[in-house]
Each structure stands twice: as structure tokens, then as C-alpha cells.
Amino acid sequence: MDLPSISGFIGSLLAISTPILLIASLELLVQRSGVINLGVEGAMLVGAFTAYVVTLYTSSPLLGLLSAIALGSLVSILFAIMAVYMRLDQIVVGVSISMVSIGLTSYLYRLIVGYGSPPKIQSTLIDALAPFLRSIPIAGDTLFQTPLTPISLALPIAFWLLLGRSLVGAIIKASGEDPSRACRLGVNVAMVRTILLALEGIASGAAGALLSIGYYGSFLENMTAGRGYLAVALVILSSWSPARLLPTVLIFSLIEVAQLRLQASGIIEIPYQLALSMPYIFTLAILAISSGGKKAPRSLGSSEYEC
């Protein structure tokens, strides 16, 4: 491989990994605080939809990004109300929120935009920031695939420090390890979880916006295609360690990119379904090998606790 194609490869890798990494980093904190949020898929989709519609009507990708963030966190807060305050089953609430989001975005798309080939927005988020991004020396084009790529790469490192050596980190861990006891130590567990979920909503909204107004410039029904669920699974694969999250997401994205290039190269004849199922087989295999449950935050997935 020559240099430009390597940089193209890394570029593709980062393009695929940025939204997943954004969500997964926050989902890691959320899970460390004891909540498993499958509603990210919905928050991401709502983000993608909002960003598209707002950008379409205002021609401002930045405004689109901001509204995606706002509505993404709203979806997450809705999840928090049901799963944290009403203490409904986290997993079912998450799946339902995602399901409703698919329906609602496709429904509203029909009402607001219409049907058929979606009108392209005037300029994408990347277009809007391209001159600035390109001007960054050396890695400008590769590393700064999107304005959020550097942030997404920095988040796991920041969270590694946060969890390892800060009071906030201790409070998050306490909420996830044993919410009843954390509450007795004076932690407002519900508030901790809600704040983290709201932050995750922001990340999900931004990641969704990246898909619609960042890479593609348009919105399609269910365009997140399970990426939110994937982020949740990758958190589990990385054994809830921010240090392992970055390599895990990158390896996973690598498989995804390699899988497409493998099909493109025509070197190996495999059923394309097998190529496409690679990420899922990979996930299951890692789940099987890593005997995941042991390192999980002790109260992960359970909404019930008492003081």
C-alpha cells in the first residue's frame, strides 16, 4: 500500500469509528454507573433526523448539530425518567425507545420532508468546517475526518483518568457497584445516572448528526442501522475499561473496513452474508472468550435499589 491509500484506509477506519467511539465512551461511564442504555440507538437516530431537518431548513449544519444534541439528550433523559426514576426494566425500555424512534423519525420524515429520494442539504458539517480542518498540519485530512474525531479519540483517555483518580470517578463507580450503599454514603445515585445519561444523549445526538449531515448529507429511515447497539456491545467487549475501549472499537472498525475491502478486492470468494456477519460473529466470540460477566459493574442492568 502506498501512502495515500494507507491514509485513505485510516481515514475510513476513523470515519466508521468516530460515531461509535463517541457513544461507546459515554455508554461506558453510564454502564459503570449501573445503567445499560440500549436507547442510544434511538437517541442517535433522533439526532440524525433532527440534524438533517434543521440543516435542510436553515442551511446551517452547526445549528443542525446543536439541535441534534438537544433532542438526543432529550431522548436520553426520557430513558432516565423511565429506567432510573420509574425503575422500569432498562433493557426493555432501551429497545422500546429505539423502536419508537425508528417509527417516529420515519413518520415525521414523511410528514415534514415527504417521501422518496431525500433532498440533499446544502453543505455538510464537514464541508462547513473543511477549510479549517484541512489547514491543520500533517494529519489534517486523516485524523480530522470530522470535527468530532479528535474528541472521540480523546474521550476514552479522559474517562480513563476520570474513573481512575477522581472523586467524580469514585462516585460513578460506587453508583454502579452498589447503588444502595452508594446512597448510604451520600451519593444521589439517580442524579448521577441521569446526568451521565444526558451526556450520553448529547454524544448520541452528535454521532447521529455525523451520520446524517456529516457523512451522507441526508436522512433515511433507520439509517443508524444498529450502530448504537453495537456501541453498547463494544463497551461490554472492552470489559468496562476505558483503556481497552479505544483498541476494541478500532479493531472492530478495522474488521468492518477490512470486510468491505475484502469484498472489493475480489481475492477471496466468500458468501457476502458471511462477510457481513463477521462483526456479529466476532462480538459473540469475544463474549464467549472473555467470560464477560465477572468484571461487570455489580448492579449493571438492575434499576432496583434501596438506601
Binding site: L167, I171, K173, A174, E177, L185, G186
Partner: peptide
């Protein structure tokens, strides 16, 4: 309050438990 047995968070260090309480108090 000191609870029956103990009600410190087991997965955290003694210091982390203490700083959480300190913050609340």
C-alpha cells in the same frame, strides 16, 4: 450512620469511600 456489618462500597478503595462521604458531609 454506621450500618450493621458494613455498608461501604466493596469495589472501591477505603480512600474513595471516605472521599465520597466527605463530599456529602
Amino acid at each position: 450512620m454506621a450500618y450493621q456489618g458494613s455498608s461501604l462500597v466493596e469495589g472501591l478503595t477505603a480512600g474513595e469511600n471516605i472521599s465520597i462521604v466527605a463530599r456529602a458531609a
